[in-house]
Design a protein around this nucleic acid. Structure first.
Lengths: 210, 210
DNA sequence: GTCTATAACGTGATAGAC
DNA sequence: GTCTATCACGTTATAGAC
């Protein structure tokens, strides 16, 4: 059906190459700023093929967006509803899991936040992230720990802002941080690797009652 | 020179009204997604006047961007180079100063990061933010405190990521956080007000050697 | 200074040959 | 399935009347 004869580096079906290219360009520039011609060039294909395989720029974007969001949430859904692990364990798993995921695709956090921002209503209708988080085992465990005096901050939202912020913010602000720290891509990546282990420690000391 | 006869709410010169409208629209949608027609409509002026006062969309954007960045940095430059204040004091001042500033214009952090991202080279040429931070009294005090064993984390970059992330991340991710917490604008704003006092405390406990 | 009309251009999408 | 050529449209920017 699709050609798959050679063993070249980019030996993908045309459809897959377009999707891969679209993902890269959309991640980098966002929906509004990318032109279909950018995607075609990145994919090394003819512009008309984009519309042949995916009806329109918007349809292609929607596919990329939903796949990305789905991957992003898949990473967390299992962890936060595991009855057999402690809060501390979940924190370690989430930090490590997300940092590993994002190190492979560092543009994802900014991309997702950017596009959710410009279309919030639509996304929260499709993906009820509020329900997912609020009804999670994680939040229940957090509230229990706070009620038992094991955690100082009773509001889980402050916790989420601090914890998820520690994970995502460096990637979101990476151009500025690289400039401030004179970091190349590898040095930045090493810092993120360090944070995998340190964020749980920081979070732990930050949550302790004084 | 400019008309200023009435006392209406929006009694500004045409030029000022365009700038004000442009700021609002650019903040909300970013450069690529805003159309000059959006700005004209928001300002309640004729489209042609935009080009009459500011040669082009790009020129207008550049003015807004530089003003915004300048305000944003002005807020910090004095504080971080004050020889007479302690590290702890600076942390309190920065947290309070930025949260107050951003509560008035909550879209600024995302706007700045978004546009810096798509044009990093140009901005860091004009505003040497790396030099400003690295040569600051703040960083010198931080290194001294770390050398004296008063702070556990020796790398100021980790500190900056955690501290600035705690301040900015909630605003950057506000649509998601509002959804998760079922917060309206006022409830969100109250949370940010709370963080003004709590972030310095959190940062303090997080930095302490164990 | 402000307006209307329109030029000049870029972009998304399609028709139709191969 | 893939290409070239082109349409249709929206957007930025300007010309020129008032």
């Amino acid at each position: 059906m699709k050609k798959r004869e050679t063993a070249r580096t980019l030996d993908l079906s045309t459809e897959a190459r377009i999707k891969q290219a679209a993902r890269a360009v959309f991640y980098r520039k966002g929906f509004a700023a990318t032109r279909t011609r950018d995607i075609a060039e990145e994919a090394g294909i003819n512009l008309a093929l984009l519309n042949y395989y995916f009806r329109s720029k918007g349809k292609l974007f929607e596919i990329i967006m939903l796949e990305t969001l789905s991957d992003f949430l898949a990473n967390i859904r299992g962890v936060i509803n595991d009855e057999s692990t402690s809060l501390e364990c979940k924190i370690e798993q989430i930090a490590a899991g997300y940092i590993d995921l994002i190190r492979r695709e560092p543009e994802i956090p900014f991309f997702l936040l950017s596009e959710i921002r410009s279309n919030a209503g639509v996304f929260f209708e499709r993906i009820p992230i509020g329900k997912i988080v609020k009804s999670s085992v994680f939040i229940r465990q957090y509230r229990e720990a706070a009620a038992n005096g094991k955690i100082a901050e009773p509001n889980p939202l402050h916790f989420i802002m601090n914890f998820i912020g520690m994970i995502l913010f460096p990637f979101i602000a990476s151009p500025v941080l690289k400039e401030i720290g004179s970091l190349d891509a590898e040095a930045f990546d090493r810092l993120m690797e360090e944070r995998k282990k340190r964020i749980p420690l920081w979070i732990n000391s930050l949550m302790k009652p004084t």
